[in-house]
Amino acid sequence: MTSLKEVQSKESQHPKQGRVFRSKKKKIGLDGTNIRSAKFALIPVFVLLFLFLGLPVINSIQLSFSRWGGLGPLEPVGFQNYTDLFADEQMRYSSRITVLYAFSVAIGVVAIATVLAAAVSASVRGHKIYKVIWFFPGIAPPTAVAIFWSSGFQPETGIVNTILGKIGLGGDHAWLASSETALYPVIFVGIWSAVGFAFLVILGAIEQIPISVREAATVDGANIRQQFFKITLPLIRPVMLIMLTLQIIWTFNGFTVVWAMTTGGPADSTSILPILAYKEAFRFGRFGTAAAMAVIAGIFLMIIGSIGIRLSRSEQR
């Protein structure tokens, strides 16, 4: 994944020693043996990346133009898989909800993380503890997390419903059981488990705002809210954008939480693209169409990714 640091480092507020060193770098950089070591050290990187990323992508594309049941030779079918998919209602539905799911989670995550980071950075008390605790949901294996929540959302027996019942909000909500509502608990869990990470990233960005800038604002009489909207937010916007982009990509690719909570159901209402592709390949034995789904999803993600990166870059300039 794109390194935030990569982008951050280009930010002016990021005091960089790197630039100073770059001039010195030449001195060692000219050292021929180090260049040779670099080439040597990079060989395994490129070989492995080619084997595990390059070849599979080529293979997926090839597969997407074929029919293959899981065994035996590929049977070329041209664009058949793609035309089938464009005509397929489930594919269109799944694409829609995948986008809905990815954007809802990403926006929710970044919004909550930003608010929390602002709140924590404003009041120093307990600062460190929150940094540790809020990342728990991101640490626990997503499978375990999803199993807990899916049992928690069961009507009557689930703990969420038990608690809602106790406080008078009704204890028999069956969100996961209806294709109208099943996506909401999934979005909730997606947000719940991802906020901790985004929080740390955004808090890191806030903490890099030089104290002098904030003090200046305080002297100017800005209250916490003004300070946040006028000073903090504009300065961390590039990081938020990158975080948003990455979160969209991760959620878009996310398989574990949805699979463990709903296996894509009921009636395929939560079958986001990775799940649809998994089912297409491994339940229906149509690996060609599954690969075509993956290629379409991949193209979409690359577009999202490049838009996100470009936006955050232009923000910085």
Partner: peptide
């Protein structure tokens, strides 16, 4: 049962 479309067979059995 209520919420049957969100329960797998094991959960239904337990129910």
């Amino acid at each position: 049962q209520k919420g049957y479309l969100g329960m797998d067979l094991d959960q239904a059995t337990a129910y």
